[in-house]
């Protein structure tokens, strides 16, 4: 008798097909829509220099600026959805580009330390690590009220450890794990790739999220 796929396999399949879709949209924004808008923008720049008349020039200049803002926003949206570097350069470059965007969006300073060199991870492991860090960071922006945070990534010979630490409000972890999907999903996603996620928090002091992933040598 054939055995049914396990719950883990099903969750994994659902997550992966969603991620594929997000990646496709991000790529389309970045390479498709973004590129086309950029071509239009350079066209506008050319027009601006070639037309006569201050009011027309001014109008074209404003249109160009509007396009520039839109291009910028499309690019940032793509980084939030799926940083292009995650597939090409790896987890650390993708995390770094997201952190830059994070500080400029939320004003939260990130003290980032990467200790060791990134080992080659399967793409869906990189994706999971990125998403779990992103969820932790988004929760901090939404709830922690922390001015500054710390992220430490340590590559050891047989495992990877990531620490995300805030100095904000803190919360009751046991209670939220029972009733909130975001935190439960972080734990579940780390389990699916064979790692784990430990959250500890002290009210009034802050929260520490520890991710752990064994590495094959």
């Amino acid at each position: 008798m054939e055995s049914l796929p396990s719950r883990n396999q099903i969750s994994s399949y659902i997550i992966q097909s969603q991620e594929e879709e997000i990646k496709r949209i991000a790529l389309e924004l970045h390479e498709g829509v973004g590129q086309t808008l950029y071509s239009v923008f350079t066209g506008f720049q050319f027009l601006e220099t070639s037309v006569e008349g201050d009011s027309l020039k001014g109008y074209i200049h404003e249109m160009g600026e509007l396009l520039e803002k839109t291009i910028q926003e499309v690019r940032l949206l793509a980084v939030e959805l799926h940083p292009p570097t995650l597939t090409t350069l790896g987890f650390i470059p993708a995390l770094k580009s997201y952190l830059k965007l994070y500080t400029s969006t939320y004003g939260i300073l990130v003290d980032f330390i990467n200790d060791g060199t990134e080992s080659r991870l399967p793409e869906h492991h990189r994706m999971t690590l990125f998403r779990v860090c992103q969820e932790a960071l988004v929760n901090i922006a939404k709830y922690a009220d922390s001015l500054q945070i710390e992220i430490n990534v340590v590559w050891k010979s047989d495992c990877l450890e990531i620490l995300v630490k805030d100095f904000g409000k803190g919360f009751d972890v046991d209670k939220e794990v029972q009733q909130s999907a975001g935190i439960a999903a972080m734990i579940e996603r780390m389990k699916i790739i064979g790692g784990n996620c430990i959250i500890s928090s002290v009210i009034g002091e802050g929260t520490v999220i520890k991710l752990f992933l064994p590495l094959q040598s």
């Binding site: 839109t70 926003e73 400029s104 969006t105 004003g107």
Partner: peptide, 13 residues
């Protein structure tokens, strides 16, 4: 706090 100093407003958002 001084978070505002580091925030770039996202256009349209």
């Amino acid at each position: 706090n001084d978070k505002y100093k580091r925030i770039t407003v996202r256009y349209g958002k």
